[in-house]
Amino acid sequence: MSDLDATTPRVFLARHGETEWTKNGRFTGKTDLSLTANGATQVAGTAAQLVGPGRLIDPVRLARVIVSPRHRARQTFQLLFGEENANNHGHAVDEAKVTFTESIAEWDYGDYEGLVVSEIRACRKEKGLDGERAWDIWRDGCEGGESAEQVADRLDALVSEIRAIQQPYMNGEQPVDVVLVAHGHILRAFVKRWLRYPLEAQLPMMLSPGGIGVLSYRNHDVNEPAFFIGMSLPPQQ
């Protein structure tokens, strides 16, 4: 498979743009923040370059767009696929293909909502936790929120749903790309479960606010999930 022919189905991971809490590293789960002006600019730049007819994410090739219901994700969806993106004029995604769902909402941080990592570790130390090793969300989850096991379970259900959509068309019989519009932690967790890694597995990843990641399958085989570490892009039209 060449990167450009895009015959094997793909899953695009779209992280929302910057918020006020993104800037200082505060854990933002259910708190319904808006994008900053810079965050909107980040997403608009991505949309202009990568979303639209003939671009990397082409609306006519999409089977589903799955969006977190949080406001910052909804704003990002609109900047990518709405009239805000001039590339989309006359090429909007069919509303029937768009789903807003908690299945791709950010990790529920529970008691750690609004805190930074150092504050979380200090709080846990006061409780006598983590005596031998530092807190790690991928292993320890969040007090009052979701455990790693709970996150893995809901993402596994979503992975299965996406594979059921794409499996009949692994050789390009029809375009069935999927886009997830969501958040930093949950999208990185999704990558691990897509690759069938446990969440506690060491797989350092970065996904910038407003950025796009790409998953697919090796050898046109639904049983060989993979991720792109680099790919060629369609020429600009």
Rank of each mutant, 00 (worst) to 15 (best):
M1G: 12
S2A: 05
D3P: 03
L4T: 13
A6W: 05
A6H: 12
P9S: 12
A14M: 15
A14S: 14
R15T: 01
G17N: 06
E18Y: 00
E18Q: 13
F27E: 01
G29C: 03
S34M: 02
T36E: 01
N38K: 14
G39Y: 05
A40Q: 15
T41N: 14
Q42Y: 05
T46D: 09
A47Q: 11
V51K: 04
I57W: 00
D58M: 01
P59V: 12
P59K: 10
V60L: 13
V67E: 02
R70W: 07
H71A: 00
H71Q: 07
T76P: 10
L80M: 15
F81D: 04
F81M: 00
G82C: 11
G82R: 14
E83K: 10
E84H: 14
N85D: 13
A86I: 02
N87I: 04
G90F: 10
A92T: 04
A92S: 11
V93R: 06
D94N: 13
E95P: 13
V98N: 06
A105H: 09
G110V: 11
D111V: 07
Y112M: 02
V116A: 03
E119K: 14
I120Q: 00
C123Y: 05
R124N: 13
K125S: 14
K127Y: 08
G128K: 04
G128P: 09
L129D: 12
L129P: 08
G131F: 01
A134W: 03
A134D: 15
R139Q: 12
D140C: 02
G141Y: 06
S147M: 11
E149A: 15
Q150C: 05
A152L: 03
L155T: 08
A157Q: 12
L158C: 11
R163C: 10
Q166N: 08
Q167P: 03
M170R: 11
G172D: 10
E173H: 00
E173Y: 05
Q174K: 15
V176A: 10
V178P: 04
V181H: 03
H185I: 03
I186T: 12
F190E: 02
V191G: 02
V191F: 09
V191N: 08
R196A: 11
A201W: 08
L207N: 05
S208E: 15
I212W: 10
V214Q: 06
S216P: 10
S216N: 07
N219R: 12
N223Q: 14
E224D: 15
P225D: 07
F227C: 05
F227T: 06
G230F: 03
G230W: 09
M231D: 00
P235W: 06
Q236D: 14
